[in-house]
Simulated scan of single mutants.
Amino acid sequence: MADITDIKSIMYTEKSLTLQENGVLVVQTSPKISKHQLKEVFKEYFNITPLRINSLNQEGKVKKFRGVKGQKASFKKFYVKLPEGKNIESLAI
């Protein structure tokens, strides 16, 4: 069972802000959560039933840190379509 702690953050980028104007939230989560579990989290904690949820596995980039190769952490990204007129007050900009 997933809960609110599986949501790492809401992404605020130029693309995600334009999507947010159209009622789509971009959520970064842990890789273990599924679409159905995320839908239950939104129902339970925010009292909103998402219309559609799309997922994307984002692999960590390989970077150099002081000449030593390393890899950033992988994460899962969800695009959550909210019903018309609904938003999450605590996340409003």
Rank of each mutant, 00 (worst) to 15 (best):
V26N: 00
D3R: 12
K61A: 10
N87P: 00
P31A: 14
G23Y: 06
N54V: 11
T18G: 03
F46M: 13
P83M: 09
K72Q: 08
V62M: 14
S16P: 01
S74M: 02
Y79W: 07
V24Y: 06
F78A: 13
M1C: 08
I53Y: 03
I48R: 12
Y45P: 07
P31E: 13
R66P: 12
G67D: 08
K72I: 00
L17S: 11
A2N: 11
L56M: 12
A92H: 10
M1H: 12
Q58I: 14
V41M: 09
A73I: 04
T29Y: 01
D3G: 09
S55Y: 02
K77T: 01
F75D: 02
K15R: 14
K61I: 05
S16R: 13
K63M: 11
K77Y: 00
K15S: 05
I48V: 13
L19G: 07
S55M: 05
V24G: 05
V26M: 10
S74P: 04
M1I: 11
T29C: 15
K32D: 01
L82Y: 01
K8D: 01
D6G: 03
K39E: 12
V27T: 04
V41A: 12
N87W: 03
D3H: 02
I33L: 14
K64E: 09
Q37A: 14
K81E: 08
V41L: 09
S16E: 10
E84N: 04
E44A: 13
G60C: 11
K43L: 15
L51C: 02
A2S: 15
S55R: 03
S55N: 09
T13F: 09
K69S: 11
F46R: 08
L19D: 12
I93G: 03
V41K: 08
L56N: 13
K8Y: 00
K8E: 01
K86T: 03
L19T: 04
V24L: 09
K43P: 00
S55F: 01
